[in-house]
Each structure stands twice: as structure tokens, then as C-alpha cells.
Design a protein around this nucleic acid. Structure first.
Lengths: 153, 153
DNA sequence: CTTCTTGCAAACCATTTGCATCATT
DNA sequence: AATGATGCAAATGGTTTGCAAGAAG
């Protein structure tokens, strides 16, 4: 089942409507694939699509997308949220360069296994997690400016 | 070297002053040990110590404590920051119950090893990381109210 | 005495919300 | 036609900042 069908189904189950604004947000998330923040999304909707949506609607739609499990909210340490598609995108964590803002996705089987074991051991019912590694990417290593506002890749 | 000496040294190196307000914040962080947010800290300073400090000063002091490496800022998904002592407290991650807000610390050697290897492989210079697991603690398992203190995925 | 700090209140910024109007079902 | 959705602007809540008065070195 693709993201659009999945979202339509979710909305129907809650007796909510599949408006053009909601479709536009989902489409843009899908088109992008990677992580996006609200500002990016608004810009892309305005500049690259015929269909725009207000900031409030984007926030409201993202909340629905998160609830439905299609998108996840991630914290990349930039002081505001980012969102990324879950559907069709293998689960991963983020490695973030505090100098240039570059974000590298990674995943590790051993970490996944350890996580599951830890939860099981303590009777914790895992629903989601967030693993961010901060530091300097190979290009910024040795760089002194750890105080730069990170640009979004 | 203890936390007070360490902070004094850091402040001196930056030609900053070790005021009673700064000492009070550090003392309370040290006394508490675990994670605290600004509200907790203000309350404790006001109620449990003779020395208080304004909200602005608490924020400013925490920033200095983070810069100096004595304290780290952690995101427990509550919509605001928490802070915890690094010095004299073994490194750990957090498992957070989205229903009751309970936070359990954990650490895992295999995860630490995997993290180091991953960074090395990609030439990433690791400075810090944050690993949060969200879900339901043993007491809240089966609970329906997923609408409590949570924020992240 | 000079410079850094404090506390206050105003500013800021991301996010949420109330409400009148509009669009889907 | 009924109900939910939108856009706007105002509200919110955590955090930051400008500034005058105060304290540390």
C-alpha cells in the first residue's frame, strides 16, 4: 500500500477529509523523501507546486501524518522539528555535523538488536526512538566554528 | 577534579566571574544528580536554598555549564530541555514512558561500541549524542492514553 | 574602579488555537 | 446541507536579549 492510499485510509477511519492541502503536503514529503522542516515544506509548496497551504495547515497535516505512521518527527538539534517519510524508507538514525549542518543517515543492526533486548529486559513496550550523533563531518573536522547556525542540507 | 573546581577553572579561562548565583545552580545540579529542567531548578533554588537566581540567570548559567562540559542538555521529548550532570555520572541514555513521563536511564556497551565504529568508518568526529527510546513502561503497558507528556516520534 | 552579572521585561521563535469562512463528503 | 478544514491572526510557552542597576575581581 502506498502513502496516499495509506493516508486516505487513515483519514477515512477517523472520518476526516482528504483535502487538496493534505494531499499536497503528503506529495511533497514523498517527493522529497529525506527530512524536511515546516519552512522547507512551505517554500516547496509555494514555489514548486500549484497547491499551497498555510503554515497552520502544514502543522496540522504533519501531525496527522505522524499519527498515521506515514511520517516521523525527528529532532536534528536545530531548535525546530524535522519530518521524514517512514513508508518506503528504511529505518535509520542521524549523524549531524554541528559545523555545516550536514545530516548523514545511518543504521546498524547491532544497535537495533541491543535496543530490542534492552526494552524486553525491562518490560518496556517500545514505540519509537531517536538516536542522534553530533560531531564534525570529515570535511569540517578540525574546524573551529562550532557556533555556526546550521544550514539545512 | 570536582565540578566546582572544574567550573571555576572554566570561568577563569574565559575571564568570567564565579558568582553566588552560578555556584547555587551548579550546587543544585550536583545535589540532584539526575535530569532537571529549568522550572525544577528555579523551584529548588527558591524553596530549598537561601540563594535564588532569576530565570534568565539560570538559562545563562546552564549554557556555561554545558559549554564547560560539566552538564549536558538532553531532550526527553517534553517540549523543553532537561539538563544533567556529566561529571561523576556515568554516561547513559534515556528510556521515556509517553504515558506517565517516567524516565529510566540505561547504557549498553554494545551500543557504545557500535557508535564508535560507525563514526570511525565515516570519518565523523563524534562530540556527543542523544539516544531516546519512547514507549510504555511496565506499569503503563496497555494504557490507552498516548496523549500525555510526549513529543518526539 | 572596571568589567562582568544580574533581574526585569520585552522580544523571539516555533508551534498551537479560536473563529469566521470555505470545501468535501 | 452538514460537518470538517482552511487561513488568518492572536495566543502560547520555552528561551533569549537589551538595558539599567549591582557585585566580583
Amino acid at each position: 500500500m502506498n502513502a496516499v492510499e495509506s493516508f486516505a485510509k487513515y483519514l477515512k477511519s477517523k472520518e476526516l477529509k482528504f483535502t487538496k492541502e493534505r494531499k499536497a503536503v503528503l506529495d511533497e514529503m514523498f517527493h522529497r523523501g529525506g527530512h524536511l522542516d515546516v519552512e522547507d515544506l512551505l517554500y516547496r509548496l509555494r514555489k514548486r507546486r500549484k497547491q499551497s497551504a498555510s503554515r497552520a495547515t502544514v502543522y496540522r497535516t504533519l501531525e496527522l501524518l505522524v499519527e498515521s505512521g506515514i511520517v516521523r518527527k525527528v529532532d536534528l538539534g536545530h531548535g525546530h522539528s524535522h519530518y521524514e517519510l517512514v513508508l518506503d524508507h528504511p529505518h535509520h538514525e542521524h549523524m549531524i555535523c554541528v559545523s555545516c549542518g550536514k545530516v548523514v543517515e545511518f543504521s546498524d543492526k547491532k544497535i537495533e538488536v541491543a535496543l530490542k533486548r534492552l526494552c524486553k529486559e525491562s518490560g518496556f513496550e517500545h514505540t519509537s526512538h531517536c538516536f542522534q550523533i553530533f560531531g564534525y563531518c570529515d570535511k569540517c573536522k578540525g574546524s573551529l566554528d562550532s557556533k555556526k547556525p546550521h544550514a539545512n542540507p
